[in-house]
Design a protein around this nucleic acid. Sequence first.
DNA 1: GCCGTTTTCGGCCCGACTGTTTTCAGTCG
Length: 575
Amino acid sequence: MNRELSAVFEQIADLMEIQGADPFRINSYRRVARSLKDLAGDVTQMCREGRLTEIAGVGKGQAERIKQYLETGKITVHEELKAQVPAGLPALLGIPGMGPKKVALAWKQLGVENVDDLKAAIESGQLAALPGMGTQSVKKIAAGLAFLEKSSGRTPLGVAWPVAHDVADRILKLPGVKRVEVAGSLRRGKETVGDVDLLCECARGKKTVEAFTQFDVVRSVLASGATKGSVTVEVPGGGELQVDLRVVPAASFGAALQYFTGSKEHNVRLRELAIKKKWKLNEYGLFDGDTQIAGKTEKSIYAKLKAPFVGPELREDRGEFDADAAARSADLVTLEDIRGDLHMHTVASDGRCTIEEMARAAKEMGYQYIGICEHSKSSAIANGLSIERMEQHIRDIREADKRMKGLKVLVGTEVDILSSGKLDYPDDLLAECDLVVASIHSGLSQDRKKVTARTLAAMENPYVTMIGHPSGRLLGKREPMDVDWGAIIAKAAETGTMLELNASWQRLDVKDVHARQAVEAGVMLCICTDAHHYDQLGQMVYGVMTARRGWAGKDLVLNTRSCAQLGKLLRRKRS
DNA sequence: GCCGTTTTCGGCCCGACTGTTTTCAGTCG
């Protein structure tokens, strides 16, 4: 319901914008849409408890609208807007080059009501003939349309990350380049990114930008100037990704890094702090009149503004300006804290490497331990292990562990939580494992009550260490299960069950806001890659960034612990 | 339409770029 309602508010804002309503009023609807999307609790529940105005940006009026939607499925202002503005128009706002003014212009002058109408207006030349339009504007819109069709919007973190770092490395090798940094939502570790923002400090800006636009990965050049270049590059698996490069002077590097890292909402708050002190903050620095008083580093800006300095992952205007934020930020889990990976598969089920291959790769990464967790018998598609095969596999892992020096190989299992809520293996088999990940792989579309009850039942089992990928989502492919997060997190806290933070970029499950909710309840997380090949062990970085977005301190992340502490924590629930 | 360590009205972030203008509007991040 949170997301459904968020989409309604977003649409109201879009429709109002096309109508040319007061921008501040429009923004207030967008604010509510964003709050609802990020909301950890359930909006229906909050409404029942009369706590709607606790949501950021929700006052008396918006609370009334939310209530109206929950009760009737409609909001008066939404219905009125829909009657006035064609339903296909908000989609046009997503086209690069099309803003509210141009959408309204095309609609009122040419009757353009959807993407197809727009295409026709471009081809007939009518769009270019409109006042304020021209051949260049239309060219941009046409290119925007083509880009959207190819890229289908946002790119997953795990797809954009290697591409961005590859391009950044190439820039760093260019002559005269001193420094290159990744900024934007990628630096914040968002699960999907719209584009890639790179900053560089260099001697010759124009030459650097030119060379950047000529890399062989570049598909098309959108802009190329002395301080900014913009290109699209091909991404593995098809589609394109926009990469922007900005050349920044050393004295402003921190200000630019801060500015281009965002988020927009975080930056607004920061700039408001500057204004209160009669200063001005922009991408060139913090200024008192014409004098730059900070900007060489990010930290200098936060320090001057007396704002808590927090890591990029926290900059979402979700409480990072509170007094304790800086301290909490400093304690958050980092990639260097990770000492092992407790959920991975081998050829025994549906992995592609042997126990030894996985173990060797983990040891090379500097890990102290790993956990091998194969699928259980009901996951037939994934070559799940029968009880007999599992017993043999346990012996194989114990043998491999003896042979491995300097790395502990733990016996685990990823046991299915069946449709009934029962586990796929008997307790005596689970008891032989060092850890048990219980996951739902079937019946994902059951109703909220059922899927929640299954997960709760699994947590009651003393051998279940953690719930694997608790929502079951696959980014861009499969919606999450409709689980009651409040109930799951409460049960996890009560039973001492942990939640997996599956680091695979297709999953990132639990996601950031639910990780945050778990952390606030004191529930331990375990960041696991669920690797099916040793080259997937590196995806840990995505899980760590997501955990940081959930404000997870290292003390609440199981796999930051030493081998000895790990053993204790794994046995804790059984005793 | 929300919101409050210069409060219940009057603010609400800032600059670059682009194209279509002849002083600026629209879009973007």
